[in-house]
């Protein structure tokens, strides 16, 4: 059952993005930003947490999940450190993801070469 919810929630988030790609002039970078901001807003309003409890990585892996982590990290840092937590919390909570993207991106680019699509 868990797997099913992960698939359904994650898949639905991706379908929505694909519909935006196909029907609007937004380019991928704009949609990525849209998704992160949507995740931030939904989490701040308390609407994203139930989705994460239901679907786990189905809700945290898509980019809205990055917005969710930013907000959660900020909230918990505020609890711990007070005012300064507003500035440190978001990046602290997402540092593993950001660092992994950099490291694996670098590793991939040093061993493979882009090719023209045929």
């Amino acid at each position: 059952m868990n797997y099913l919810w992960v698939f359904l929630v994650g898949g639905t988030l991706c379908i929505i993005a694909q519909i935006i790609v196909d029907n609007t002039k937004y380019v991928s970078g704009q949609i990525l930003v849209m998704y992160v901001v949507a995740g931030v807003v939904l989490t701040a309003l308390g609407l994203y947490e139930p989705l994460v409890e239901l679907a786990g990585s189905g809700a945290t892996v898509p980019l809205t999940g990055f917005g969710y982590s930013l907000v959660k990290g900020t909230f918990s840092a505020i609890d711990e450190k007070g005012f300064i937590g507003i500035f440190t919390g978001g990046l602290t909570a997402t540092s593993a993801g950001i660092c992994a993207a950099l490291v694996f991106g670098y590793l991939a680019s040093s061993v493979v070469k882009p090719k023209t699509k045929i």
């Binding site: 790609v21 380019v27 991928s28 970078g29 680019s109 882009p114 090719k115 023209t116 699509k117």
Partner: peptide
């Protein structure tokens, strides 16, 4: 446009 690596549709 975008770098090939991005794999944009």
């Amino acid at each position: 446009r975008t770098p090939l690596e991005q794999g944009s549709q």
